[in-house]
């Protein structure tokens, strides 16, 4: 869904159009969870944080300024909710590990210029075009929650080879998404 469509839905939702509000929540679902993962919200709490964000968004729709893009507006609400979430969990936040802290720092630092996160529909279409082996490894990792150790045991490979395949797959998907965005803009 384009940024223009999201703005229109947000405006309509703010004026009481319930269908628009529902469509907006559905469209925001994937990018919102992606953003929360990037901010390092633990898997165990990400659903609660996402719900809080969407509820705040819904309750603020009447105040949404349609001259501003919708996605950064939603992300600013999410950042506010996440900041509240961490307020009582300072120790857990510090225990996340350097990598997650670094990613969060980069996301927050780069936010003003952040590209929109891929829409679920686009990503699913790109996944459909992957070779079967890559799809299988992707599904085992992201939908079954298996580690590269587990996947390598099942597929009689090595953990390093699985991680390499995952890295390549992510890169293929990134290019596919970029191509889709470029074709959309061109159109």
């Amino acid at each position: 869904m384009s940024e223009t469509d999201l703005r229109s839905l947000a405006v309509a939702g703010g004026q009481g159009d319930l269908d628009a509000a529902e469509a907006l929540i559905k469209a925001a679902h994937g990018p919102l969870f992606s953003f929360l993962y990037l901010l390092g919200v633990p898997e165990i709490d990400v659903d609660d944080v996402a719900q809080n964000t969407v509820i705040q968004m819904y309750q603020s729709l009447s105040r949404y300024d349609p001259t501003l893009p919708f996605s950064p507006w939603l992300r600013s609400i999410a950042r506010h909710v996440v900041a509240n979430y961490w307020r009582t969990r300072a120790r857990e936040r510090d225990n996340r590990g350097l990598f997650r802290q670094h990613v969060e720092h980069c996301v927050v630092r780069d936010e003003p210029a952040a590209p929109d996160l891929p829409q679920a529909g686009d990503l699913e279409k790109c996944i459909e075009h992957l070779p079967p082996k890559q799809r299988e490894v992707l599904a085992m990792t992201y939908f079954e929650g298996r580690t590269s150790d587990d996947v390598s045991s099942i597929l009689h490979s090595t953990p390093a080879a699985i991680r390499q395949m995952l890295a390549r797959t992510r890169e293929v998907l990134r290019r596919c998404i970029e191509a889709k965005l470029a074709s959309t803009e061109h159109a």
Partner: peptide
């Protein structure tokens, strides 16, 4: 490279989330 991989990883993780279940939860909270 790190940033792009992290974004794609987060997007793939979010694909596994059940949107209908999420909507039900939001509805219940509202």
């Amino acid at each position: 490279r790190l940033r792009q991989a992290a974004i794609m990883d987060a997007s793939l993780r979010s694909l596994g989330r059940d949107r209908d279940a999420f909507l039900r939860s939001v509805q219940a909270r509202l």
